[in-house]
C-alpha cells in the first residue's frame, strides 16, 4: 500500500474545527464506501426479514436477505480497514511541492 505512515503528525494549522472538521476527518473513501454498503446492507436485510421475498420473481431464494448479509459484511470490512490503518487527510506528501 502506498499509504505508508511516514506522513508525520497532522499539520495543526490545517485541521478544521467543529462539525465540518469531524466530517472531514472521516472523509476517507474507505469509511464512505463502508458506510454506504452497510446502510444498504441493513435496508436489504430488513426487507429480506420483513418484506415480501417475491419468490415468484427470484425463482426461490430470498435475494434481499442474502444480498443484505453480504453487503453488511463487506461494509464492515471497509470500516475496519479505515479504523485499523487510518490516513491523515490532506497531509502534504514528501517531494510534492507545487
Amino acid at each position: 500500500m502506498s499509504t505508508e505512515s511516514n506522513q508525520a503528525e497532522p499539520d495543526q494549522t490545517k485541521v478544521n474545527k467543529g462539525l465540518l472538521g469531524t466530517l472531514l476527518s472521516l472523509f476517507d473513501i474507505r469509511n464512505v464506501i463502508g458506510a454506504l454498503l452497510s446502510i444498504y446492507g441493513v435496508i436489504l436485510l430488513l426487507m429480506g426479514l420483513f418484506g415480501d421475498p417475491e419468490v415468484e420473481k427470484t425463482g426461490g431464494p430470498n435475494a434481499n436477505l442474502w444480498a443484505g448479509i453480504v453487503l453488511l459484511a463487506i461494509g464492515a470490512i471497509f470500516i475496519a480497514w479505515g479504523v485499523l490503518r487510518p490516513v491523515v487527510p490532506d497531509a502534504p506528501h514528501p517531494g510534492e511541492k507545487e
Binding site: Y40, I43, L44, M47, G51, D52, E54, K57, N64
Partner: peptide, 11 residues
C-alpha cells in the same frame, strides 16, 4: 424487472 424483488431492484 423480471428477477429482482423490491429492495434489490432499488440497489
Amino acid at each position: 424487472r423480471d428477477l429482482l424483488p423490491n429492495g434489490l431492484l432499488g440497489l
